[in-house]
Design a protein around this nucleic acid. Sequence first.
RNA 1: GCGAAAGUGGUGAAAUGGCAGACACGCAAGUCUUAGGAACUUGUCCCGUAAGGGGUGGGGGUUCGAGUCCCCCCUUUCGCACCA
Length: 904
Amino acid sequence: MMDEKYYPEKIEEKWQRFWEESGAFEVEADSGREKFYCLEMLPYPSGFLHMGHVRNYSIGDALAWYKRLRGFNVLHPIGWDSFGQPAEQAAIKRGVNPREWTEENITHMREQLKRLGISYDWRRETAAHRPDYYKWDQWFFLKMYERGLVYRRLSPVNWCPNENTVLSNEQSSGGVCWRCGAKVEKKDLEQWFVRTTQYAEELVADMAELEEGWPERVLTMQRNWIARSTGAFVDFPVKDSTEKIRVFTTRVDTIYGANAIVLAPEHPLLAKLLEGSTLGADIARFADRVRERRANVKPDEEVEKEGMNTGLFATNPFNDEQLPVWVANYVLMDYGAGAVMSVPAHDERDFEFAQAHTLPIKQVIAPVTHDKEPSGFEPQLGEDVSTEMLSAMTDYGMLVNSGEWSAKLSQDAITEMTAHAEKKGFGGGAVTYRLRDWGISRQRFWGAPVPIVYCETCGIVPVLEAELPVKLPATAEFTGTGESPLAGVAEFVNTTCPKCDRPAKRDTDTMDTFVDSSWYFFRYCDPQNGGAPFDKEKVAYWTPVDQYIGGIEHAVMHLLYTRFWTKMMRDIGLISFDEPIKNLLTQGMVVAETFYRDEAEERVFYNPADVQVERDAKGRITSALLVSDNRAVTVGDIEKMSKSTNNGVDPNEMIDSYGADAVRVFTLFAAPPENELRWSESGIDGAVRFLRRVYGMIWKWRGTLDDDSLGGKPQTNETVLRNIPELRALRQTTHRTIARVTNDFERLHFNTAIAALMELMNAVADFDALQKGVAEAPPEYHATARFVMREALEAMVVMLVPFAPHAAEEMWESLGHAGGMLQSAQGEVRWPRADAELARREELEIPVQVNGKLRGRLRVAADVGEEDLRQAALADERVRSFVAGRDVVKVVVVPQRLVNIVVR
RNA sequence: GCGAAAGUGGUGAAAUGGCAGACACGCAAGUCUUAGGAACUUGUCCCGUAAGGGGUGGGGGUUCGAGUCCCCCCUUUCGCACCA
């Protein structure tokens, strides 16, 4: 049955077949059992698994197995984020059909996942590009349309000139395309938007629920992205007009220091107010220039503040001062009110602007902290301080030069002045967010069609629910021009109006793929449902997700959208909680060494597999040779695995050489999951070595553990145990290891869990070596030894399942358990239980310090009392030599741990 | 510029305020051999023959005791970047 040698290929194939045939990982909702929903971020089917995927799924699988062995009903599904640009790029560049391309990729990647032996319930597999899935994207769109949560508007969109497509704000963050890095331009198009801002407040507030289970980093990023800001709005009446200019400010306390009102170049009032004025045309030109400049600005570039005086004046409602109205490039139309009051003395940007245009600077806040120097100038209250002030003073302080508000503190003034503005009707408190609504229209083919029809008589008409899905046509003409490909498919475009039945045209845009991924893990709970996105009861059982695992790159977009989607689903009555994901683990990147040569034209990178590294006596890398020509290559930086640096490794090749189990063990052992994982070929060798040692030990002992001929049935014999320390010691190690590994799993510290198993293996090997010397021992000894060994080996094998499931199943079977690890559990909890009594050390080694320095060690019984420990420490000969001739000031005794003698 | 996180052997790393470096990789010496990309044994933070001393980016502090807590600085990584 079991081979003497460890042949991963054979074992892995055997158990993968067994799992599949026995439906080992297929689960159903069962209200009688506690559930655990373990989820990994679904992959885009690019065609090939990379090491990042391997890491992601190895982490998830370890946890899923652990929870299963602890008796949980574990939902562990997978699917495909199969809409999106690469399929369409392939269509444009190589003329392949996106659907066929996608399906082939899925088939290939599914095989790769199966070779890794990840324990998915494959019956629940979903794919975004299939009509039975995207039907529900469209259904959600209609639901949101009914509730006014999606709307259409003409909007300057972020446009990637390289990929000819619209990008969301998030996707164009920093002014570059998130995927290809091209400079983003602006273009006006009719777009569909999801009103994410309607939930802005909740998206911030509910983060309190996530503090426990989400990385602080992710919460910070989301908070920064939403950027809730409280302040006030104030209306400034325009002189000689009935119009008012509204500004938003967080520092209404500085309003007496305003020297101008500054509008964004796109501000709608400009055109209105300057109608017929000669300046109007100049301003329009200025606005155009600013816009063009903005589109072409490089990510790190500092843009100089430019502005134009409009000649208009607005009245400060607090003091009736007439302020000039400017237009400037640094004011943004889509934040706050699109206009600001410029207070140069107390705002850095306004200060810079005032400097650039030699505007007066008036100080209205005086510093109150005495330990802080006023920022570089002596306050000359009431004067223009533009010559003295070297930088803006943005701290809170005491109001000066502010009429009746003078001498108040900033914080109080903000509250009172906001109330005043509200009472007088020219302002009030306001909260703004940086978060924008989510533009979901894409001029793309490979996505879910927007279920909307345009009728000449009825206007914008939603498709009837019964008519869903609006199916994508088989193909379209892929020109790559940025025009929606669907617009060229007459059979698709031409339809009839759902309301009046007359000829009408369909929306030819498709939805952002983040729509698909916003709710996919709800669909896993009920993937075949034809009448609803999912059954409410099934989802109520399985969700929320207990543990989500994926890359940090989704910290904002995906994870924010899915939080929004959850709240929307709650409000349409599908679910009853606020947050979809209880615990989030963001795994680090997989990185590797790079090797290169600088050739005449370019830098040529060589794959680490083709390079031989030389080391010195300390193990430091001294040089590297390319194996093929035996000449040196330069050792480069450690970088994320990528094509451009040619430092990637192919999971398939790794599995071929070492087996899936070893790949998984190494992946989890080499670093904690949040850290970068540095791929190392020798590291994976170590993983194989470890598995081989365990396997060899099982092979050696497997038959004899049940063998009655030597001393009878293996069993514990209390007398033997009491008298033979090595037997007690192995039991102790076994139970200590169980406690450690269990605890490590709860903290998701897989690397230390594996280290603990390695230690147990070392202890087992030592014990095994001892057995040579006790051949003549009495039968009771052997019976007990076998019992102790069985206990150690079985615990080790079960705890190894989450990391190396194939090898562990094989070894479990050879230890005499038929039917597989899960089946043989028969509803029992298979995970071993640590017996605290057995794990307890009998004797402790207590370090003794003198003035904090280690001076001796005491061997004492584990239950030694505090006073006895103190006496023993003081009596220790070595310790005494350090204490002699000095006064003992204090003796600190930490029970079970340490003694520190303080002397003078 | 703003914000966050992190700095520990040659490397990946470990350490509820209590023996710094577990477990591995690499390296060194050795054993065996069917000479391998095997297995096993031993050693491996630094200085020192040793006794001993030093050591967790640097500096200060709290404490009987600090890799761990607090303050300042340096470096690196990540996120945001005219958000009023």
